[in-house]
């Protein structure tokens, strides 16, 4: 049996955080939560998760900054990051991709199941 995959979820909104935990947990992933950019960085460095789901609007340090730092750190730069945000401007998407995000999904525009499928694709 494959080792359980760890997903770090950086999300400050409780509404979403609980869905991630519930659904992703049910799908068999180990979900670790971070409520802001600083925590996200720290936990990523510590745990070296298999995937990071990164919100953009967060307190302390926003997603862009966290992403930039993550990719700059040799220990963490190889970890795949999927940006999850309700911002949807072309400039935001461009920026995230330039900073090294694998994907950018607008939370409201994707079904939870589709998200899970996409996650599985990335973790293959």
């Amino acid at each position: 049996m494959d080792k359980q995959k760890t997903i770090l979820v950086a999300e400050d909104d409780q509404l979403y955080a609980s869905v991630y935990q519930n659904k992703l947990g049910k799908e068999g992933f180990n979900v670790v939560l971070a409520v802001n950019g600083v925590e996200a960085l720290k936990k990523t460095k510590e745990l070296k998760p298999d995937l990071v789901l990164l919100d953009l609007i967060m307190p302390e340090m926003d997603g862009f900054t966290a992403l930039e730092k993550m990719k700059a750190d040799p220990e963490t730069k190889k970890i795949k990051v999927i940006v999850m945000s309700n911002l949807g401007q072309d400039s935001d998407i461009k920026r995230a991709k330039e900073l090294g995000a694998e994907e950018y999904f607008v939370k409201a525009s994707i079904s939870i199941q589709d998200l899970v499928n996409k996650i599985r694709d990335y973790l293959k």
Partner: peptide, 22 residues
């Protein structure tokens, strides 16, 4: 739009979970 999307998105996923039986 961002402000509107946030709750809407949350609602959607929750509803999806409900409908899936999760």
């Amino acid at each position: 739009s961002h402000q509107l999307r946030t709750p809407l998105g949350g609602m959607r996923w929750n509803l999806e979970m409900m409908l899936e039986g999760d």
